[in-house]
Design a protein around this nucleic acid. Structure first.
Length: 126
DNA sequence: ATTCTTACA
DNA sequence: TGTAAGGA
């Protein structure tokens, strides 16, 4: 199921198409790029080329804005998501250490006592 | 015809 | 954010 993501990442849409797909003005789209909320590629003629992921991202940005969130807020959201993604990536490559096991066992002990309510930190499964 | 950058009676 | 100007 990785061919799909590859296609969604292909930058094949000119700004005019993206404008119709998102109902955003070229001005707004370029401004969001300036704010590093999106990173469309450039073709040989310096024309911006967007991927389907870029379009989704723009629609997402539009929703956040409609909910009253400002540029800084949106940047913060994506910054955090990027951070969580990196954390997940880090856990993927690092096998559990003895300390990890101890911590996991300790946390489970607390959960059994009903001392906590929600999910605590997640650990690699293999 | 489209899109790009820069700038603001 | 819109829009005009001047080039690609």
């Amino acid at each position: 199921m990785k061919e799909k993501e590859l296609r969604r990442s292909l930058a094949v849409l000119p700004i005019g198409t993206v404008m119709k797909l998102t109902n955003l003005s070229a001005r707004q789209i370029r401004y969001y790029e300036e704010q590093d909320l999106i990173h469309p590629e450039r073709n040989a003629g310096n024309r911006r080329m967007f991927s389907l992921n870029d379009v989704d991202r723009l629609l997402e940005i539009k929703d956040y804005l409609a909910d009253g969130i400002n540029m800084a807020g949106i940047k913060a959201i994506y910054a955090q998501q990027a951070q969580e993604a990196q954390q997940k990536e880090a856990d993927r490559a690092r096998p559990l250490t003895d300390n990890d096991v101890r911590r996991i066992l300790h946390d489970e002990f607390l959960n059994l006592g009903g001392l906590t309510s929600n999910q605590g930190p997640q650990y690699p499964t293999h």
